[in-house]
Design a binder for these strands. Structure first.
Length: 707
DNA sequence: GAGCACTGC
């Protein structure tokens, strides 16, 4: 019986946005200090034991990070030790820290690789990366032959990428140990249980067959998890051994309410003031569900502050949520003025992504806004749901990072007992089109039979297969189509956007579509703070196109291009970044989103060129571009209803135009849209007006069938 | 009249 992993988020994977110091000359002193620190970490005492365990077992499930596999020889013969993280910042900060610990320059022996930023070289032996990136790598190297060990960190988070990666790694490990066993008669003890697994494995990976006969050393897998339950991972990997290492954490007092709170926002406010007036120094972190809630909580705190004695008013509020511009996000890291207490009002960005120093008190109403997916309607939505026990634990842990803390859970203990143990893995609550496309590209044809750690519902798989079929990515017998399906799988985009690029090359407007899909692939481009709503609206009007949001986005992109182009010759790269940010601010554009879109644009451009798609522009012929949008997004067409709402043609749902759309007031008869999200209403976003007749002309396979 | 969090050779 394996010992179960508990508690302790790995110390080495903390993300602290201000923590990323570059490699510097005073590194030797720092290194010594780090070495000393390391020796005091629990991990050091088990170093030997851990290496021994890795030697004896093919799969280990542990909860702390080992750096010493390198010294144990796992990176010999040019092999690489790969470490995956769900988030970019984590991959970068951990790589930097490890490079420093080892006293090497980043990018040499220790490096990282994330999208748009590769700091590895031929000499890199320990490579940190995002799990999504390793999945992409697998498309080119299905055996992951460069790697001797792969460490999947933060596996308990169960992102879609982690789950797909785990499934793939299990396959690769099987196939690699098979390739060794087939070649030599070595009766390797460590491979025995894998042989048993192989006999139960009826769904072979097609692509591996062509590699059969090649000799790969076995792949070692290490799964790192901070979850309460290592058993799931252990069972999935055929009874893999679990080693439990206690993380470092100060005690946190958990306090519950006596009775359920009918209004958690009000309860949160009361608790904020209770802590402020009665507890010792230390900042407060409050978990709320979204921007709107955070903004109203902020107003309410300020209102109530006026009702208490002036001497007690030394309280400041700081909001943080993902769509907040980064300069404003940074405010959470600045200490409050002496004598003041800081209240951070956060979404679950503060649960894992951002670690805020100085938190002593956590207030947790116990709710989170989570994505959910309805396979019947094919619609994703955001709904407020109770957190899981694991999430509640993660939140309370935020109070015990620098010293003992307190966590106020705004519900009775009996309610805690009723919570789910862990959050439902994302793969069970999202559209699977992309997952399926990638697996198919890796040669997994039987998606329903694929050995997922937790299988998505059959209905959900079938719905996404259907979508891919309608996009022309799959053939009648559900194989990846050639060339369309293969081209789509290679592009790191939503399948519908990948298809749009292929369609656009035939409409001679790939230039425009490249910009469009890049802009559609990022978070909202426009940023409108409540207090400057009018100004923001005015700024947006400069870019607005009467045809819709797609052309509006193109206008923004081209304006930014033009702005940069003019100044490119005279200034450095850093300076251009800086003036770009200024330009964005003046135009109420989220500079993070725009930079991201520009990165995606240049990356995707580099992909489609070698695919043989012709990059040309339709110039002034915007009608041509709108026809192309209709041909690409025909699955997302909608018709106006008499009362001003719309009916989505594919699903029959009644939807409304999102208020952020330039067509919010114009309400044309027929439109295509790119996003359908259920919040308070069913909203469609990113909309362009089209002619209804184009649908039957350009997508007859779908619309003659329908009508 | 309104936007959980992540991520992609």
């Amino acid at each position: 019986m394996p010992s179960m992993a508990q508690g302790g988020v790995s110390n080495s994977t903390e993300v602290h946005k201000l923590n990323s110091k570059p490699f510097s000359n005073d590194s030797s002193a720092r290194r010594q200090k780090i070495m000393q620190q390391r020796k005091s970490l629990p991990i050091a005492s088990v170093e030997k034991r851990l290496v021994e365990e890795v030697r004896k077992n093919d799969i280990l499930i542990i909860v702390e990070l080992p750096q010493f596999l390198f010294h144990a020889g796992y990176a010999r013969d040019g092999k690489v030790i790969g470490v995956t993280q769900p988030r970019r910042v984590a991959a970068v900060t951990v790589a930097k820290r490890v490079a420093e610990e080892c006293g090497v320059e980043l990018g040499q022996r220790v490096g990282y690789s994330i999208r748009f930023d590769d700091r590895t070289s031929a000499t890199t032996r320990i490579k940190y990366m995002t799990d999504g990136l390793l999945l992409r790598e697998a498309l080119l190297d299905p055996y992951l032959s460069r790697y001797s060990v792969i460490i999947v960190d933060e596996a308990h988070e169960r992102t879609v990428h982690t789950d797909v990666l785990l499934g793939l790694l299990k396959k690769v490990q099987n196939e690699r140990s098979k390739s060794v066993n087939d070649q030599s008669n070595c009766n390797n003890k460590a491979n025995k249980n894998m042989l048993l697994d192989r006999e139960n494995d009826t769904h072979g990976i097609g692509i591996f067959k062509q590699y059969q006969g090649r000799n790969f050393p076995p792949l070692k897998l290490i799964i790192m998890s901070a979850s309460l339950d290592a058993r799931g991972f252990s069972e999935y990997f055929g009874g893999a051994k679990a080693v439990h290492i206690q993380g470092r954490q100060f005690p946190v007092d958990i306090l519950y309410t006596l009775y359920p709170e009918p209004d958690y926002l009000d309860a949160a406010l009361i608790t904020i003031f209770q802590v402020h007036l009665e507890e010792g120094p230390g900042d407060i972190l409050v978990f709320l569900t979204g921007q709107e809630e955070i903004e109203s909580a902020e107003r309410l705190v300020h209102e109530r502050l006026q009702q208490i004695p002036e001497a007690s008013r030394k309280l400041i509020t700081v909001p943080i949520f993902s769509s907040l511009p980064s300069e404003q996000q940074m405010r959470v890291f600045a200490p409050a003025e002496a004598g003041f207490r800081k209240v951070i009002l956060a979404t679950n960005i503060a649960e894992t992504s951002v670690t805020i120093p100085g938190i002593k008190y956590v207030i947790d109403p116990g709710f989170v806004k989570a994505r959910s997916y309805d396979p019947v309607k094919g619609m994703e939505s955001l709904v407020v749901v109770p957190v899981s026990k694991a999430q509640a634990l993660q939140r309370s842990g935020r109070a015990g990072r620098e010293g003992p803390g307190k966590c106020f859970r705004l519900y009775p203990e009996s309610e805690f007992d009723k919570l789910e143990d862990s959050t439902k893995p994302e793969i069970k609550r999202c559209n699977l089109a992309n997952v399926i496309l990638q697996l198919k590209a890796l040669g997994v044809d039987d998606i329903i039979g694929f050995d997922f750690m937790e299988k998505p519902s059959r209905a959900s798989i079938i719905k996404s297969l259907e979508q891919l079929f309608l996009l022309g990515a799959l053939t009648d017998d559900c194989k990846l189509s050639d060339p369309v399906g293969h081209q789509m799988a290679r592009l790191p985009l939503d399948p519908i956007y990948s298809k749009a690029l292929i369609v656009a090359s035939q409409f001679n407007c790939l230039e425009e579509m490249l910009i469009t899909v890049a802009m559609l692939s990022v978070e909202s481009i426009f940023y409108a703070p409540r207090e400057k709503l009018e100004e923001a609206r005015k700024a947006m009007k400069c870019f607005a196109s009467p045809d819709g949001d797609h052309l509006t986005l193109i206008n923004v992109f081209r304006a930014s291009d033009e702005f940069l182009e003019k100044r490119k010759l005279e200034i450095s790269k850093e300076k251009s970044e800086k003036i770009m940010r200024k330009w964005c601010k003046e135009n109420f554009i989220n500079s993070r989103s725009l930079r991201h879109a520009r990165d995606i644009h240049s990356q995707i451009r580099g992909y489609v060129e070698p695919m043989g798609l012709s990059i040309s522009s339709c110039g002034e012929d915007l009608l041509q571009f709108r026809r192309c949008l209709a041909a690409s997004f025909f699955l997302n067409a909608a018709l106006k209803q008499p009362e001003g709402t719309y009916r989505a043609l594919a699903s029959g749902q009644v939807v409304q135009v999102h208020p952020s759309s330039v067509l919010f007031r114009a309400k044309p008869e027929c439109i295509v849209f790119n996003e359908l999200v259920q919040t308070n209403h069913k909203y469609i976003r990113n909309i362009t007006r089209i002619d209804y007749l184009w649908l039957t002309e350009l997508a007859p396979q779908y619309y003659t069938m329908q009508n």
